[in-house]
Design a protein around this nucleic acid. Structure first.
Lengths: 223, 223
DNA sequence: GACTGTGAAGGTTTTCACAGCT
DNA sequence: AGCTGTGAAAACCTTCACAGTC
């Protein structure tokens, strides 16, 4: 049967923002919150926020706002936070360790369940309370640990090989931090985060900045 | 007057991909490359790639392709890579160290110029060949080092305060890795990378996956 | 023959604006 | 009055398809 029946499909863009709202909601201490207020805290417009929440279903009270507690529950439900996903992390260098120690995975339905590396120095050691396994054992360990999602935090050169190993282990969702394109079967969901790219986008903005002070500074924008 | 005359404004989405092409181009050894080939290596369609490059200006030869060397030059120009930007990095934990040691910043016009932390244990130490300064000295050091871009890799609780210090130091572009929204003047360009968000998007996909094996696995699709 | 550059079509996302509820 | 939920419009982005060039 389909995961959840009814409702319209949720656009990617909305799903991404819903995750952000969830995070912001967690920091609130009030009992209710208006779309305008929540939107400001999340850095989006109130129209965008209301549209996003409309995919979750009617969940606010006109004239009042949204009940924080209840909203957290509903958004969590839609995003699949109620279901826990176990994550395997390949590559325990600085980035891998940063991820392993990242707070707020647990609060969002994610559990780091296994660590891997290829460096004999690191294999057998402990990071963030978890044992580091040999990347060669990835299939065995992942199946035993019921891992659903893989994260690649290795050097670029190793990324493709590690990705294939993860796929062989039955993993069909991969988050890739290595600056390399992965060539994998179409049914594997791959997301990539390129740390340098984000910085380069800022540099791009600097370069194309309005020289005379007109506020805003966007490239297009500003009717 | 506008930063660069002629040409149409470059859409955000295209600018982001141009950065990726630049990275892929750097790995090529051939003298020319076709849109189809380059697109495959970058993980986009050839139509998208050609459209993106059209914003750079005519730069290919019909029947042949693009000259790698020349294309790197033109894309670099547009992205502002020809101009070097100096980057300040606040927070030298695992994530900060991963960023400080990230290869490929230099190749993309970015130089890590200064490191900061609030932990006395770390201040005065050396990371990736750079001295770690006290975050309290951020204004002095940044101005001396001619920093244009700031990166926040601190815990969430410190992010706002550090961001304000960076702005006071004259920085108008900030990349925020802390899971916190920053409240800053409108003329400051802020980009945020949320490591947990990307993982959550994968979890979302897992949750909404077609149960019976129909390939594709997207949420919408299904004509 | 092979490939680029680009108008036009198609799809998605954002914004607007307002009906309707409390 | 204040605020949500949502059609409709606008903006934005991707894909198609082909004229034009080498």
């Amino acid at each position: 049967m389909p995961a959840r029946s009814g409702a319209r499909p949720i656009p990617q863009a909305s799903a991404a923002r819903l995750s952000r709202y969830l995070q912001v909601l967690g920091d609130l201490t009030t009992r209710t919150v208006s779309s305008a207020d929540l939107a400001r805290r999340a850095g989006v417009t109130s129209a965008t926020l209301r549209k996003d929440l409309s995919f979750v279903g009617p969940c606010g009270t006109p004239g009042v706002g949204y009940e924080v507690e209840a909203l957290i529950g509903q958004v969590s439900q839609v995003l699949g936070v109620h279901r826990r996903y176990r994550v395997a992390l390949a590559g325990v260098g600085h980035l891998g360790q940063a991820l392993a120690g990242y707070p707020g995975f647990t609060g969002r339905g994610l559990t780091i369940a296994a660590l891997f590396d290829a460096d004999p120095e690191r294999i057998g050691g402990t990071v963030a309370g978890l044992q580091v396994h040999d990347i060669a054992d990835v299939a065995t360990v992942c199946r035993a640990a019921d891992v659903a999602i893989g994260v690649i935090a290795t050097p670029a050169g190793a990324a493709q090989q590690v990705a294939e190993a993860l796929v062989d282990a039955g993993i069909r969702s991969i988050l890739n931090f290595a600056p390399a394109a992965l060539d994998l079967p179409a049914d594997v969901q791959v997301r990539r985060v390129d740390l340098a790219l984000e910085l380069q986008m800022l540099a791009f903005h600097e370069t194309h900045r309005e020289p005379a002070g007109s506020a805003g500074g966007a490239v297009v924008v500003r009717r």
